[in-house]
Amino acid sequence: MLERADAVLAVIPLLAVSGLAFRSVIAATGIGTGLLVAPIAPLGYLAALALIVRELVAGPVAERSSEEST
């Protein structure tokens, strides 16, 4: 059975690569210009970082930590 921690660990690299993959698709189709495509690549990394921060601040680890401190 897939647990939450396993799913989060699987999603982090997918999010990190998604910005580069999306940038490649736009560049390959010729729809986007260089100015449009350039800021898209770091968005995947930022999404992965946001997921990590969210899990640390509001996820099960944070809930467990707050229960232990009270």
Rank of each mutant, 00 (worst) to 15 (best):
E67C: 07
A48F: 01
I31L: 09
G34R: 07
L36G: 10
V57Q: 09
A21Q: 05
A62F: 01
L14V: 14
D6W: 08
A62V: 08
A28C: 00
L49C: 01
L36F: 10
R4M: 15
T29K: 06
L2M: 15
E63I: 10
A41I: 06
V25M: 07
I31K: 07
I12Y: 06
S69I: 12
L49I: 02
D6G: 14
L49G: 05
A10Q: 11
E67D: 08
D6Y: 08
R54S: 15
A28T: 10
V8N: 13
L14K: 14
V53P: 00
V53R: 05
G30I: 03
D6P: 01
E55M: 13
S69R: 14
A7M: 11
T29C: 03
E67N: 11
L49F: 01
V37H: 09
S66A: 14
A62D: 03
V61H: 09
P42N: 04
L15R: 06
G44V: 01
L56I: 12
A48N: 02
A50E: 02
Y45M: 06
A48K: 01
R23Y: 06
A38Y: 01
A38H: 03
M1A: 15
A41Y: 03
A7K: 13
S18H: 03
V17A: 15
V53A: 11
L43Y: 06
L43V: 13
A5D: 14
A16V: 05
G59Q: 07
A47T: 05
P13G: 09
L43G: 11
E55C: 12
A41R: 02
L2G: 12
R23M: 10
A47M: 03
A27T: 03
S66Y: 07
S69F: 07
P42Q: 01
L14I: 12
T33A: 10
P39W: 02
V11M: 12
P60N: 12
V17H: 05
V25T: 09
A62T: 09
I26A: 12
S69N: 09
G32A: 14
L20N: 05
S66E: 11
Y45I: 11
